[in-house]
Amino acid sequence: MTAQSSPGHEPYYVPEQSKMAVFATIGLVLSVFGAATGINDLTFGEPDQPASWTVMNIGLLVFIATLFIWFRMAIRENIAGMNSAQLKKSYVLGMFWFIFSEFMFFVAFFGALFYVRNLAGPWLGGEGDGGRMNGLLWEGFQFSWPMTQTPQEAVGGAGSQVIANNGSFTSARTSMAFAEASAWYAWLPLWNTIILLSSSVTVHIAHMGILDGDRRKFHKWLGLTVLLGVIFLSLQIAEYYEAYAHFGLTLNSGIYGSTFFMLTGFHGFHVLMGTTMLGIQLLRSMRGGHFTSDDHFGFEASSWYWHFVDVVWVFLFLFVYIL
């Protein structure tokens, strides 16, 4: 080898062969295949085909178990001191760009929201450059946001696939409260915002705790963060329940329901992931005594993720609930 060595450079750890990738692949493919056949059975007939869902569940099980073992392995390597500073930095970069990709996923849905609200919707209502003649098709359709009446309903189309809300939903700003209570403080999104914003603070305090080497503080605040995450999710479930049961606002109620549930739903799913991640970090610290004041990337990565979820919520609050 002609390459010369440069003294003082830390050796790099190339891991041994690993079976993880193959197992994760098997899990992923089974779950996806099961899901695809299952959904198709639901939509195109043969609704009682439990085999598909069994395949999916087995796949998910394999997948989750593999990820669990995989992460455990990575953590053990780190604790055994096998990770160089360089490798740790690779993990940091990996997490950062992963979050960036997640962000871009949301961009697609926000883009859809902006496009529909500012361009397509008004055009359907016959306004603006793009919509001069659409009145011919959707006579009587008035664009408003939330779209409480879809174009199809406006023209009373036959065989409508769109099931509208039952008319009691007026807007996210006024309606998203428990049906019995109408006071401002019953407005769920406000509470969710407060909860999520404060959880960003608590997770930061937890971080300060671990930086100070104060494990009690770390546990206390991290535990509080997880709790806030759980409360957020419970409130969101309540909100969805209200929407479906009392307002007739569903996935089927036109584009408003579509954007509303997809945006808040994917966000909620990310909150669930974040809560789980933080919960695992809490357990790791409490049970296994993991993390030191200068090595706690597992926690830090989860907290970044949490902050990201928080930022997405701020946009949601603004564009879905307020404006």
Partner: peptide, 8 residues
């Protein structure tokens, strides 16, 4: 020709 929209 876009279903649901009219182009000129």
């Amino acid at each position: 020709a876009i279903p649901g929209f009219i182009n000129e």
